[in-house]
């Protein structure tokens, strides 16, 4: 069911096809007051949801620096999900309004740089919307499954430099060598 729905999405040309059994890695930046509690209520409500999201709790969606998102993509995320309170419901009154402008601009900027804009999503999930959270995670996982692994920043920019060394569920197949890349681009976070 989910497969047929997902396969309708066009896969961007030039990006690697997903290997068998591959699962996308999503980094989620969740605001402490709404979305984190919303995700929690999805859990306590025992809702079935994909396990692709790794959650980073932030005080407010306005805390999310665009560099965090670039960094996530550089270090192996296939998608980034930013989630906060509904506009107008921010714990700090206006934080998510600023975030909304910034992320809108960022999304179009990433697209301009050649990254599929569907890899960055923003959703407003309140503390009581566990159902919505589960739905957001499900739909984003499906979108990303159809898109396949994200190009690592190095590849995205032309060369594979082995910069993304942290492992995730979507780690590309082993090359059989444990040597450091000659470019010396490896370093820890």
């Amino acid at each position: 069911m989910a497969q047929t729905q997902a396969s309708k999405l066009p896969v961007a040309a030039g990006e690697p096809a997903a290997p068998q059994g591959w699962e996308p890695l999503i980094v989620g930046f969740l605001c402490n007051w709404c979305s984190y509690a919303g995700a929690d209520s999805a859990g306590t409500g025992r809702m079935v949801q994909p396990t692709n999201v790794r959650i980073v709790r932030v005080p407010c969606s306005g805390r999310v620096n665009p560099r965090f998102i670039l960094r996530a993509f550089a270090r192996g995320a296939d998608g980034v999900l930013v989630s906060g309170c509904h506009p107008g419901d921010c714990h700090y009154a206006t934080g998510n309004f600023y975030a909304r402008r910034r992320l809108m601009l960022l999304k179009r900027y990433l697209e301009y740089l050649g990254l599929d804009p569907r890899r960055l999503e923003t959703h407003w999930v309140s503390a009581s919307e566990g159902q919505k959270w589960a739905e957001v995670v499900r739909s984003m996982s499906e979108t990303l499954k159809a898109l396949g692994p994200a190009p690592r920043l190095g590849e995205w920019f032309g060369a594979d430099l082995g910069l993304a060394t942290e492992t995730g569920p979507g780690e590309p197949p082993e090359t059989g060598s444990n040597e450091r890349p000659e470019t010396g681009g490896q370093r820890d976070a």
Binding site: L70, R71, L113, L153, W156, A159, L163, G185
Partner: peptide, 24 residues
Amino acid sequence: LWLGRATVPAEQLTYHFIRAFDVA
């Protein structure tokens, strides 16, 4: 360390991404 010191393509993009977006 937002920006690695190696002048490799991935870092170049990071640099120019940050430079332009921070003055957006």
